[in-house]
Design a protein around this nucleic acid. Structure first.
Lengths: 233, 233
DNA sequence: CATTTCGGTGAACGTCCGTACACTGGAACT
DNA sequence: AGTTCCAGTGTACGGACGTTCACCGAAATG
């Protein structure tokens, strides 16, 4: 027996790590598919929670299973391996972030505001998906190889999208495409570092305020510097 | 028996991972202290090699011992724990880097050159201490808590030193101390990202060339941007 | 030469690991 | 109603893990 549970409850009716469990054990009589999806969700959340400190490479399949409240072998009904699960988490983390950032830039052609809006979006996103961001920050350089590669690709995608939007916002070409890439890379790098810093300032609002203000300044510095850069090469 | 070795060789005369082993097994008749130091060195190198992929938190004491060619318990003669060893590696990694960067900036008051020289120094350092830099990049966000903290402190120290030197180089205060910190943070962030990118471009000289050139441009953008930033606040 | 020091040994422990396997019982399908 | 499907179960395995302990032999000490 892996966790105590009420007698007769055969399967994972109450996954330990899932926040989205129906209250008071109401017998909603889920379909098989719903049930499976719920367990899957619970596994993802459990893994996310377990690598909050350390890293996915230091998390074991058995730990995850215990956290969820299922038997170790049941894990394989949902994922081939922990790496597989890691890739899933990467996708989850980036999809919504990229969507939001793109929205910011599409709905707001005002060049001056782009910095403030982007930083705000990033910070609020870090807040509402702490665990996901912490995951990315960790696995980016320490995760399983395939996970690292996927994360790198995703960040590169962010860079390219930013470059495109910058090009559109600045109108016809004060910068070469190359300079644009370089600038976008610097800005994304600063953003990533900011996200990490926000994570570190958990529970210290003054520190977070400093960090976000710093990010704004840095992005503006980069933009202004890049403008001056090209107007006298 | 943990590794085959020639009969009668009682202790780790030929640590597997150490590159600094006397050639052809010359019987130099080391003192006890020298011997201990050599094993210690071998342990550090073995750990460094083992967390080349994954991370220190995923490396086991037994793996390290096997790599060195000693029995697991012998590890404790040199370090209290793997975390302890990690802290040692952090120090090793930063001491020489900070020294070199400081030299660059002390011997070269020419403001224009500081960017090129710093980037060159960083890149060549990454080359001659690949493993150490990879270690820092990984453990920075995924290592044991104490190791992470130590690395963060070291990087912060780099920032402060850069801020001081920037202040000295620019003469009396075009920037406030605060702006200086923000700029130094951006530059160090870009440098760290560059170091990671250089590590990734192993064996692809064109890619490395691009990365270093990009770093130069980015640092210049940051500097120019910061100058413009203060002259019209 | 006698004694101490100490880096390294090797067996043994209890725990956790991934994975193979045969099984079960309710949902879903016919 | 009878059958199939399948998420989850429970057992069992061989191996790796950290740590303990008593022990050894050569270098260091006196």
């Amino acid at each position: 027996m892996y966790t105590e549970r009420r007698p007769g409850a055969h399967s994972a009716t109450r996954p330990t790590a899932s926040g989205a469990v129906p209250r008071y054990d109401e017998q909603v009589s889920e379909s098989r598919g719903e049930r499976k999806e719920r367990t899957r969700r619970a596994i993802l959340d459990a893994a996310l929670a377990l690598c909050e400190d350390s890293s996915l490479v230091a998390v074991s399949l058995r730990q995850v299973a215990k956290e969820v409240g299922i038997v170790p072998t049941a894990f394989y009904r949902h994922f081939d391996s922990l790496e597989d699960l890691g890739l899933e988490l990467v996708d989850e983390s980036f999809v919504s972030l990229r969507m939001m950032l793109r929205d910011v830039r599409r709905n707001d052609p005002a060049f001056a505001d782009i910095v403030d809006r982007s930083v705000d979006t990033l910070v609020s996103h870090v807040h509402q998906r702490r665990a996901h961001f912490a995951f990315i920050a960790r696995e980016r350089s320490a995760g399983p190889v395939v996970v690292r590669e996927r994360i790198r690709d995703e960040i590169e995608l962010c860079e390219r999208e930013l470059a495109v939007d910058l090009a559109r916002l600045t109108g016809p070409a004060p910068w070469s495409e190359h300079d644009l890439q370089v600038l976008a890379n610097l800005m994304v790098t600063a953003m990533v570092a900011t996200a990490e810093a926000v994570l570190l300032s958990a529970g210290r609002p003054d520190m977070e305020k400093y960090v976000t203000e710093r990010a704004r300044t840095q992005l503006r510095m980069a933009l202004i510097g890049a403008l001056q850069w090209r107007s006298r090469p």
